[in-house]
Amino acid sequence: MSGIGSALLNSLDIGLLLFIIAVGLNIVFGVLNIINFAHGALYMLGAYLAFTLINMVGMPFWAALLLAPIGVAILAVIIDRVLLRFIYSRDVADSLLLTFAILLIINESVRMIWGSGIQVVQPPQLLSGSVQLLGSSVATYSLFVIVIGLILLAGLWYLFNRTRVGRIMRAAALDRDMAEALCINTRMVVTGVFAFGAWLAGVGGVMAAPMRALDPGMGDKIIIESFIVVVIGGLGSFPGALLGAMVLGLIHGFGGRYLPEVNLLLPFVGMALVLLFKPHGIMGKGATT
């Protein structure tokens, strides 16, 4: 029993972290029709900025959680204005290729700035250690990740369903020309959405930093995971990202625990199955090809 309990909690904690990251990828795709290959690199940047703020500048974790994602978002605005603006009117393949180039540039810059080795960020005193729950000990920090994940989830739901900005984003996602006709400045929306997606990646990075060692390859690992999440849930779908993240979290939590012989294979099997039977994802919109 305790085994299942801890696997479940582990799944939830991985799943919500993945959700924070993947939902940013998904919003960018939904509104801008861009598959951002550099999303994982932005996540990594969030983690490394947190490392610098906490270990070098000496800020508390909470300040880093606030500031590092903003730093990532500012960089995203620059990327958008300098590079991405050229390819918004082109097909998706070009955005994949250009963001792949951005990924290479960010990865290498991180290596140059912070070195190739691993770096470690300590969780704040309040969140280190473990507590007893469901008959097994659980890292306090995991519970914190779960709580933050749920808060963000609620916040995003509110944003999309109850605010004007959220409705504009959804309108732009449905029909950019129409939004423009309604005198919505789509250029602002485009940059804003891209920066917001990057901000979410940055939050994910800061959240992940105390759980995982930082190295310049960490973004490449997470981007494929994020692809799996958005494909399973449905490209461009907000509830889909949550569902996909939970499914992948469960695959990791239980697969690593009970089927370690095939734990690498399982996520991709899941991804392929969804694409074969519901190409637009479990919660994806409309027609199948």
């Binding site: 598959i35 998706v92 994949l96 494929i224 294979l265 694409l275 190409p279 637009h280 090809t289």
Partner: peptide
Amino acid sequence: LSVRLNEVYFAMLTLAFGMMVFAIAYQ
């Protein structure tokens, strides 16, 4: 299995199959 899909979905499905082969070779 893949050529039925277009664009991004084709790219994602081939990525999934490619990584499945990778995972098999790895494990």
